[in-house]
Every structure is written in structure tokens, then in C-alpha cells.
Amino acid sequence: MAGPAARRRGSGPFVLACLLPALVLFVLFMIVPTVNVFRMSFYTWSGFSPDMRFVGLDNFVRLLDDTQFVRAFQNTVALLVVVTVVTMGMGLFLAAIMTRQRLRGRTLYRFVLYVPSVLSVVVIAAIFSALYDQENGLINGTLRLLSLDGLRQVWLGDQDIVLWSLAIAMVWQSLGYYMVLYMSGMASIPEEVYEASALDGASAGRQFFAVTLPLIWQNLRTTLTFFVMSAVNLSFVLVRAMTGGGPDGSSEVLLSYMYKQAYTNSSYGYGMAIGVVIFAFSFLVSLLVSRATRREPLQF
């Protein structure tokens, strides 16, 4: 409800003065660019020259035959699935034992696990580049020390491995964030529910599936949307900082390919068409996931 001021007369100029700066910035730097992404996807344009031609849906038709685009799409979906399954599983497991088992030093564990969430993606990319360094990185250096040279890999330079190396970095980055989210959901479940099910003879594992999971279901659904967003966006910034899409396009993801087209290749319109596809894709996946996981909300 609006406060008392609303009923006073002559509030118009005050409201306008309060609202205008925020609205101007918002329209200028968010609405207009967003509209431009959609509009430009129907044109061919190099980005800087005045030569701009309307081509309708041509950019989208071209996408279907673009093997590099298809590959970037597959990589994004693969990262989305792998990172979501692993992070969610580990996050739920950790949150459950932290809240249920009352581990000693919980705050310290939580502190450490949440650290990657405050680091920038460039830092994370730099840390993992250091771990993965071919000669003197932590992983290969350790393997050499243990005389396990056979296990050494070119973690970021091998087409078959690079995507997994990225997935590990993504899980490392987001695990603590999701654990904290799930912990806060679980903390609100009353102890009596567990006591009651313990009286019925339910084991800790059984309680997890029969009590904890159903009661934090809404919490879980929300995080699924976050997973879709981060698979698209986090993967891009990591790829951009760590591999540049290489070797030979094997770690290209949708947004990094869009950038490549828009900047390096100066096919601005084509790049924006990719942007529209990513936008539609993440929106649709979020919608589908949200539909598929809809349940009647359970009460305590």
C-alpha cells in the first residue's frame, strides 16, 4: 500500500524527479541495447560502416549450416548438463551433512567453500590456468613428482579434455554458492519433522530423500534457473579468459562464438542473431525445467 504522501496533492514533480534519473539510465543502457540485439539480427552489418542491409531471417538460416555454431551449441548444452548435475548433487549432499550432522567447524567449512563465489572469473581463470599449466602447473608438476608422467595431460590444449577442464573450474567456482543456498533452505525445516520420521525408523539417507528434498523443492527449482544462466554466462567468461575457444573451436560456447562473430569477424548482424538464439534457448530451457519440476508446495 502507498503511504500517506500518495494522497497529498502536488506530488507529481517530486515523483518525476525521483524516478527520471534511474529510468533514463535504465532505458539508455538496458532497454535500447536489448532492442538493438533483436533488431540487428535481421541485418547484415559490419558494425562500423554505414552499409547496413535488411536480410530478414537470413542470419538465422545461415546458423543452421554453421558447423562451428552447432559445436558451440553442443558444448554449451554439455556444460549445462554436467555442471548442473555435479554441482547440484555435491551442493545438496554437503548442505545436508552440514545442517543435519552438525559438523564441528561448520562456519570454517562454509567460509572456505564460499570463497570462490567472491572471486572474479578472471582470477578463477588465472588460478586454473596455473593448475593446468603444461610444465609447471600444480597438477602436471605433482604427477611428475610422483613419477606418473603417463597421466600428465595438456589440460587446456587437448580437444577431448578441454571441456572437462572447464567444467571442473565451473563446479569449483559455484559449489559453495549453491551449498549456502541449500543450507538456508534446509535450516528452515523444523527439527520436529526429522524427529517424527526418526521415530518411524527412517535412516539419515531415507530422511534426505523423503523429508529434506521435498521440503526444499521450491528452493531447488529456483537454483535450476540459476544453473541455466550460469552455464551460458559463466562458461563464456571462463572460455574468454582461459582458452579463447580453442584448441580449434573445441571449447567454443554460444556467447564466445557470438563475440567472435561480432568483433573479430565483424559480422555484427550475424553475431546478434546468435545472441537472439541464446536468449531464446535459455528462456525456453528455464521455462521447460520450471514446468517439468512443478509440484504442489509442501507445508511443514
Partner: peptide, 30 residues
């Protein structure tokens, strides 16, 4: 939060939609 004015719900909806616009898409047009 406190005043009633014409277009308030429009402003609210637009800002809410803005939550879903990711910077990564729009930095090139900007």
C-alpha cells in the same frame, strides 16, 4: 514503494524484466 502515480505498474514490470537481461548480450550494442 510509497507513491501512486500513472504508469507505476509499467515501470515495475519493465524493471522486473530488466532482471533477466544479462550484460553479456548487450555490451556489444552499448
Amino acid at each position: 514503494a510509497r507513491y501512486e502515480f500513472r504508469g507505476r505498474s509499467l515501470v515495475e514490470v519493465a524493471l522486473l524484466a530488466g532482471l533477466f537481461v544479462n550484460v553479456n548480450y548487450i555490451v556489444v550494442p552499448i
